[in-house]
Design a protein around this nucleic acid. Structure first.
Length: 331
DNA sequence: AGCACA
């Protein structure tokens, strides 16, 4: 779901008096906030990557429609993520973001011509929006992205509230996600619009980090086996998260410490026991991950395992280990 | 070849 539209860049729920009335995705562009230096910019992939529209545009509300009314209407719809009402024109316009365009289309169809309010006899009209609603979600991987948005807070600090502090205005506490799973609409008893079919769009499963390839490594002088591995030959711009992703899923992984030095980045990984360390020592020797370029990592046992002190102070009281101590398991 | 932290 990456794309230009997701820069969660401004806060969404100031109803009427927002300093910058949210640009109506379907309306003529007034101010398009070009996301400043955003990390999610996909410009490096070319402009062809145009994000799918998964927002619907809703009109036909009574003039006094509340943001909340719309939310309460929509939260039952599968894939609903967020909505907002724009009061700028003389008619209130609603926008609702769904997790996929399929969900959006399904929601659009089910809301089409719905009687929203019997007293005012308002009937909804829906179409796909021209572009997606901007939403700041808790999912933002990088918190730098929302610093600029703080000024738009109207009441309550939403930026830290995601998923933890339910706020009446807070949109994304995923309505029907969570334990029920992504696709469980679990419509309410009265269920006026719950029955439509929604194409299943499975979430891409989190990929298990795996080396992209292996390169033969000459690992001449290694240290005595221990529960801590030393990883070298990682390349200039090795990505720590990638490294962690790879190692943290290895059985027995305990912790990892990255040491960035002038020329080389190295890292240390502690395992539960010697066995798991040894397994990884062999299985990932020479592994190449994307950020390491095309070079293979060198894996050795660490000179100074976690838990063993460097300069002669042996913490194992009973066992007077000396310099030539056998490879016992440390931990 | 680059080995820190408790």
């Amino acid at each position: 779901m990456a794309g230009t539209g997701i820069h969660p860049y401004h806060q969404q729920w100031p109803p009427a008096q927002a300093p910058t009335p949210p640009t109506a995705p379907g309306a003529p562009p007034s101010i398009h906030h070009a996301p400043p230096h955003v990390l999610f910019d996909n410009s490096n992939r070319g402009p062809s990557t145009h994000e799918e529209v998964r927002t619907i545009f809703i009109t036909g509300f009574p003039d006094d429609v509340k943001e909340r009314e719309l939310q309460n209407l929509l939260r039952w719809l599968p894939g609903y993520e967020a909505s907002q009402v724009n009061y700028k024109g003389d008619k209130a316009m609603g926008f609702a973001l769904f997790s996929s365009s399929q969900h959006a289309i399904a929601a659009k169809d089910s809301l089409q011509d719905m009687v929203f309010d019997v007293e005012t006899k308002s009937v909804l009209h829906t179409e796909m929006a021209k572009k997606n609603l901007f939403v700041k979600r808790g999912i933002v991987a990088d918190s730098d992205a929302y610093d600029q948005s703080k000024r738009l807070r109207t009441g309550g600090d939403y930026s830290h509230a995601a998923y933890t502090t339910p706020s009446p205005f807070h949109p994304p506490p995923p309505p029907v996600w969570g334990p029920h799973g992504y696709m469980a609409p679990v419509p309410p008893p009265y269920d006026p619009y719950g029955g439509y079919p929604v194409p299943q769009v499975p979430m891409p499963p989190a990929p298990i980090p795996a080396p992209s390839s292996y390169v033969p490594i000459q690992n001449t002088k290694d240290n005595p086996p221990c529960n801590t591995l030393f990883i070298g030959n990682l390349g200039q711009n090795i990505n720590e998260d990638e490294l962690r992703g790879l190692f943290s899923v290895q059985p027995g992984f305990k912790q990892m410490k990255v040491l960035r030095q002038e020329r080389h980045t190295v890292c240390f990984i502690e395992f539960e026991d010697l066995n798991s360390a040894t397994t990884v020592h062999h299985s990932l020797q020479g592994a190449v991950i994307p950020s390491s370029g095309s070079i293979g990592m060198r894996i050795q046992y660490s000179k100074n395992p976690f838990g063993r002190r460097k300069d002669g102070i042996h913490h194992v009281a009973s066992h007077s280990a000396n310099g030539a101590s056998p490879p016992i398991t440390y931990q």
